[in-house]
Amino acid sequence: MNNKEKIFVRKAAPENSARMVESIYGCKWSLTVYQLLANDVNRPGEMVRNVAGLTTKVLNQCLKRNVEFGILDKTVYNELPPRVEYHVTAFGEKFLGILAQLEALQDEIDGAHTHI
């Protein structure tokens, strides 16, 4: 064997981050939630009222998943009636940047296909 030859080990996909992206894109409402948060709509009731077809049950599942991933932060205020708000975390900002890059890549792919 030549001294300059290298043996490479099979490279695997980044398991946790790939699963997170898949889970977020698999949730039909996550991208809508991010859009709402970007427009200062951060309370669940307000989100449901602003999006046709979005139910409280589905929204709560979506928000819970995003909090578990560390993308969103949940703030519960000690008030009556109870008030809950969601905000994007610093990690979430990084993650949303990656989603924006994926969207730009898809736009580029779509543009390339229209020129065929």
Rank of each mutant, 00 (worst) to 15 (best):
W29F: 14
S17C: 05
I109C: 02
C27F: 12
K94I: 10
D107Q: 07
A52K: 15
G26H: 07
G111R: 01
D107W: 00
V21K: 10
P44T: 15
L96K: 01
H115S: 13
E15D: 06
V84Q: 02
K74M: 06
K94L: 14
S23C: 04
E108G: 01
D73K: 09
K64C: 06
I71A: 02
M1A: 11
N66F: 03
K94V: 05
C27Q: 15
N39F: 07
P44V: 07
R19E: 10
L63K: 09
I109R: 02
A38I: 05
K28L: 14
V48W: 08
L102N: 02
A112N: 08
E103P: 00
F95L: 01
G53C: 05
N16S: 11
T32M: 01
E22W: 08
A112F: 09
A12S: 14
K28F: 13
G53Q: 09
T75L: 15
M20K: 15
T75E: 12
N3W: 14
L63S: 04
M1F: 07
A104M: 01
L59D: 07
F91E: 06
R19F: 05
L37K: 08
H115K: 05
E5I: 03
T89L: 05
E15Y: 07
L102H: 00
L105S: 01
N42F: 04
R10S: 10
P82F: 03
V51A: 11
T32S: 00
H113E: 12
N78S: 14
Y25E: 12
L36Q: 09
E79D: 02
P44I: 03
V67W: 10
K4H: 11
L80T: 13
I71H: 07
I98C: 01
I98M: 04
L80A: 10
P81H: 03
N2F: 12
S17H: 10
N2T: 06
F95Y: 04
R83Y: 11
V33G: 00
V48S: 06
D110L: 09
H115Y: 08
A52L: 08
A112W: 06
L59M: 13
A12R: 10
I24A: 10
Q35R: 12
G111W: 09
A100H: 01
V51H: 11
G26I: 11
A52F: 08
E103H: 00
V48H: 06
V51F: 10
K6M: 04
L37A: 03
A12V: 07
V88F: 06
S23Q: 14
N50D: 11
A52S: 11
K57W: 13
G45N: 14
E93S: 05
V51G: 08
A52I: 12
